[in-house]
Amino acid sequence: MKVLVDCLDMKNKINTLMILVFLGALAGHAIGGGDDSAPTREYQVKAAFIYNFIKFIEWPGPAGAEADQKSDENNEPITIGIIGENPFGNTFETVTKKKIKNKQVVIKHFGGFEKNNIKYREDSKTKYKYKDADALKACQVLFVSGSESEYCKEIIDIVKDSYVLTIGENKDFLKTGGIIEFATEQKKVKFAINLIAAENAQLKIRSKLLRLAKKVIEKEEDEEENS
């Protein structure tokens, strides 16, 4: 589609865009398969939040650094992974046209944790390994869908050392080691941040974002809680 867009001249861009959006919608609908419902306002907001989170968080290494505008070709894209059911519908597809920190945004969908585990034995124990674990680790952002609430810990464990911003919507997402947890209060989307997990993932979260967080789990707090 991108190629197509590039081929078109500016005059027809808008028309084409509309057609593409329409086609995209159809495609999303087709790809989404099981999730027929269109994204709710809540998920539109969450999608936007996820986008904005990226802007307030710094990743270590070249991925984190803001790209040089002139050499955007060489920049690695920012990958947003969505594991489990996709509640966003095609929301992200329309948003990915925008660059973040002058980088392309790529959306990757990963299948449910349960279904995509590979059983293997190791040390005479049956172990499961997520088949796209490497791909998960390569993501900068991983949204753990509500459908994966049972496997949050497992999923987080996979990516916890791989500079991945984990975002979930389960109640105890932070406790399981997630970094950002969405919560809806009075129909408003709020979020909480686990700063310890973020530090573990070597992610730097801007204070502005922290300030907005409904709740921030910090070391001291942790210690206090522990004590």
Binding site: V45, N52, K55, F191, K208
Partner: peptide, 10 residues
């Protein structure tokens, strides 16, 4: 200062 608030509709 309002940047984040606006971004996150706070």
């Amino acid at each position: 200062n309002c940047k984040a608030a606006v971004a996150f509709e706070d």
